[in-house]
Each structure stands twice: as structure tokens, then as C-alpha cells.
Amino acid sequence: MKKIIQTMVLAFAVSGASNIQAAEYQIDTKGAHAAINFKIKHLGYSWLAGRFNHFSGDFSYDAAKPENSNIRVLIDTKSIDSNHAERDKHLRGDDFLNVSQYPEAKFVSRSFEVQDKEHAIVKGDFTLHGVTKLISFPVEKVGEGKDPWGGYRAGFVGTTQLKLSDYGITYNLGPASTHVELELMIEGIRL
């Protein structure tokens, strides 16, 4: 059944290829309907959560041709916020993000491997702390449609796990805290 739907979707996509243009979206950071959160184990006993307050990005998405989607997100590393000034100062310093030298982290997608209407695996280059790595992680479409103010919006959520030492961040936070989980929740406004 799934296969049939996929084929139908594909057929539709191909037939309409000439007149369907992938829609461009801008991530709604202005209205803050988007968030980049992180969490990391603290001592192995609990979670420490934080976020990046400043970022920007855009994506292109067409429900008819989801495999042609792409996304680009730029993160201002200085804007890391774990709700504790002394810790944030440490995180911005050279033990961790070294934001004066690496003020920007970014993700630029390379491909979307569509799994079903709502799910895909995105693959792309993630740059953090001056190191770029090809990563892939699952994304889920939350929804899309008209907003009440005359616009059109689409939203996605994606999570991935990074090994800090892969990006040259080697400060010892303990054996349970070698990886950080990143969560990207974005709402885009169609341009």
C-alpha cells in the first residue's frame, strides 16, 4: 500500500514537475516559532538543557516532491543560553565553543531520503567549532497550511546526537556526558 502511494505521489510529482515549483520558506525566528535546543547528561544523573537564542535559516519544501527539499540553518554560537550566566560564559570560552574564534555553526543539507509523507532522513554538512562533518538524522513534518494572517507555514522537527570530541570539544565532563543531543524545531513562512 505504501509503495502504491509512493508511486502515486511520484507520478503526480513527475507529471506536475514543470509547473510545481518547490516553495521557499524562511524560518520564523522573528516570531520565535522555532528553537534550537540541546541537552547533555549532567554527571550521568540528570539532563542539562539549553538552547541557542539566535539563529536563522531557510528551507525549500514541496509536499509533492519532498526528496527535493533542502535546508540551511546558521547558528550564532554566542547566543548559547543554559539559564546560568557563569556556565554560559564557560561554554562560550575556549574549553567549549570558543565563540570568538568560531562565532557560527551551520547545517547545510545535501539530501533528503523520504521515508513516508511525514518522515525523512536528512543528510548534510554540520559545522561546529570549526569542524565540518557529514551527518544524517531523522526529521518529521509536523504540519503545513495557511496561517490566520494571510501567510502559509510549514513546520518540522529533527533531532540528532553529536559526539563533542568529533568536533574538537574535548573538555572532560565525565563519561556520561560525551554526547549532546540537539533538537531543531522550525516553522517556516513561505516566501
Binding site: 554566542k78 539559564n83 546560568h84 550566566a85 557563569e86 554560559d88 560564559k89 562560550r92
Partner: peptide, 28 residues
Amino acid sequence: ISTADGRGVEVFGLFSVPSVGEFIENQE
């Protein structure tokens, strides 16, 4: 530095000097 997030400065656990807030972004 220490009061940039609204936390006070604890003095030997006896009392705390309150924060007067954050005046600039990333004040710490």
C-alpha cells in the same frame, strides 16, 4: 559576571548580594 542572569552573589552561604540585572547582552 555572576549577576548577569539575575542570580545574586552568595557570601559564604550566609547571605546573598542581589543582582541588579543584565545591562547588555552576554554581559558575563
